[in-house]
Amino acid sequence: MDFVTMLSMLTEGFVVTLQIFACTLVGALPLGVLVALCRMSRFTVLSALTRVYISIMRGTPLMLQLMFIYFAPWYVFGVQLSTEWKFGATIVAFVLNYSAYFAEIYRSGIQSIPVGQREAAQVLGYSRAQTFMKIIMPQVIKRIIPAMGNEIIVLVKDTSLAFTIGVAELFTTARAIVSSQGVLTAFIVAAAFYWVFTFVVEAIIARIEKRLSYYHD
């Protein structure tokens, strides 16, 4: 196999990696807010259930969750597993798992906002929704960016776990090439892909951080 063929195969794999990454963020970033709000809910049942959810998601391997969700339709309902479901199961597992981590980051951010901010908004007549969207959340986002950045960079590399259910992402492709060709070049190229990708993600996060540095509290 020549280098160009290998590169184009790995690039195809990388596109899948990118899709897993993007879909996870699109799903888990908003879902995390919802989970955080449930976790902080005044309704003790809801808050307790959410706590259990977060505990399970963080307390068991993502690889296991991935396999569980992928195989569940077959073992539980007897539904034939399709190739599309591989990708679908990956996204479901990643979104569920990452929303638990994100939720705790959001919660730490929300709880770090001084109570005076809420009181000021309340006295000025803002509704609860307005207070959250206009006053609390913008400040939370600024505060949690370092922690979020960390988690998002872990996600870049976690996408390789989709290998376990045979999704043809970057790592799966690299491993297949290495096994068939008997040389490690594909691993080195894949590593370069991951490294450049995290580098770009870091740069984007740094840029967002800089854009929000127009104020400090």
Partner: peptide, 17 residues
């Protein structure tokens, strides 16, 4: 009632953003 009064806090509580 909130339309009738205003409150100024000890530590201002301006919105920093």
């Amino acid at each position: 009632a909130r339309q009738r009064f205003g409150l100024v806090f000890q530590n201002f509580n301006l919105f920093p953003h």
